[in-house]
Nucleic acid binder design. Structure first.
Length: 388
DNA sequence: TAGGCCATCTGGTCCT
DNA sequence: AGGACCAGATGGCCTA
């Protein structure tokens, strides 16, 4: 009867973007196991109405609807699986409690596997809520627009984490639907904070146990804030990656944080060098009666357009970056700040294939390419910006 | 399998 | 007092 309904990774990830695939594979082994158990359970009862978790089985539709479950779940201190689980809860008919009580417990233990105690407690509390009650309506506005204001969030009467989570997912979907421009993505965590604060207010005459709960909520509050801060930092790093020269492609591994910063630093320095070089070129060209050297003619051609100039400089830029990374890998992390900066004023011939230390660039690249560990070689080869 | 990279949690410190 | 920032610890994922 319990024939295998194992979900193949291919069937789940077919047709989805890499980020969606990553969301899917972000499930822990325990959570994936739980999903499979639920799938078998559902199959056993021949009814999609049977299990309150049946929506979780259709991971493809979950991904299609809530690609940001990871972020939402993260904002709420619970796993993506838990976020997706709840996203489906309110669309599923009420379960038969006599049928699902024990199963609920086993699913809970599976879902919380690998979670921190705090997150496991939050999920347990959420799942202990009234699973059959429909999501209450805040103001009758069903299109989600009311999530635009923090006031409406603060005035939300519910202290139901499941409902709060659903609101976050709805609003996150609204945010995505608006192309990421219509809503502050950090509001979800704020909403959680508001919810938790309201919860704490309700516990002002608390027993020691409730006092511990309040402390737990404060800790979750701080954790969420820290996660949000780190997400903001990572968003900024992502933006930085988009403006520095390296091969952007799905086939090229993303630059690590440290490599991004090193490349950006050298890029900025090289831009300064480029400006200085341009100035010298212009001064030279303004001099009358001076024949232009053969090498300078090519440089002026390159200077005619910024992209060409940039390509001209990129060789040196990447030699510098490769050297920085080689230094980084040869030294301990304690020496990060001690790596020698490139000279601020390079000699006039810095656009040649000689770098500021007099080392030939090709030689340097060859040497460093066998040394660096931090940056993918395909990403380093960005002067042509081609994928390997 | 080891090492690199990363996200998250956590407690401490500093700042407003 | 509360939030921002920081660094250490920990565990997961990925790649060579």
């Amino acid at each position: 009867m319990m024939e295998s309904t194992a979900i193949s990774a291919e069937s789940l990830t077919s047709g989805f973007s890499p980020s969606a695939v990553r969301t899917l594979t972000g499930l822990t082994a325990g959570q994936a196991s739980a999903a499979q158990q639920m799938s078998q359970y559902q199959h056993h009862h021949h009814s999609s109405q049977c299990s309150p978790y049946s929506g979780l089985f259709n991971v493809s539709s979950v991904l299609a609807e809530h690609l940001n479950a990871t972020r939402v779940g993260s904002a709420f201190g619970i796993s993506p699986a838990a976020a997706m689980l709840h996203s489906h809860h309110h669309r599923i008919p009420a379960p038969d409690p006599t049928h699902h009580q024990s199963h609920h417990q086993s699913m809970l233990s599976s879902l919380t596997e690998g979670m921190t105690p705090l997150n496991a407690n939050v999920l347990a509390a959420a799942m202990s809520a009234d699973l059959s009650s429909p999501a209450p309506s805040t103001d009758g506005d069903s299109n989600g627009d009311h999530y635009h204001t923090e006031d409406s969030i603060t005035s939300a009467p519910e202290d139901n984490k499941l409902f709060t989570l659903k609101r976050a997912i709805q609003a996150q979907a609204h945010y995505v639907g608006a192309g990421g421009k219509g809503l502050d993505p950090s509001f979800a965590a704020k909403e959680q904070e508001n919810s938790l604060m309201n919860g704490n207010k309700n516990r002002c005459n608390a027993s020691p146990k409730k006092h511990r709960l309040g402390k737990t909520h404060i800790r979750l509050n701080i954790n969420a804030r820290e996660r949000r801060r780190m997400h903001d930092l990572n968003d900024a790093l992502d933006e930085l990656r988009t403006v520095i020269p390296y091969a952007h492609s799905p086939s090229v591994r993303k630059l690590s944080k440290i490599a991004t910063l090193l490349l950006a630093k050298n890029y900025i320095l090289m831009q300064g060098n480029a400006l200085e070089e341009l100035r010298r070129i212009i001064v030279y060209m303004n001099q009358s009666g001076v024949p232009m050297p053969p090498g300078m003619a090519a440089t002026c051609t390159a200077a005619a357009s910024l992209p060409s100039l940039h390509a001209h400089f990129s060789q040196e830029l990447h030699a510098m970056t490769a050297q920085s990374i080689a230094n980084l890998n040869n030294n301990t992390t304690a020496n990060y700040a001690n790596s020698p900066p490139p000279p601020p004023h390079p000699p006039p011939n810095s656009m040649s294939n000689m770098n500021s230390n007099g080392t030939h660039v090709s030689e340097m690249m060859e040497k460093s390419s066998t040394n660096h560990k931090l940056m993918p070689s395909s990403a380093l080869n960005c002067s042509q910006c081609v994928d390997k």
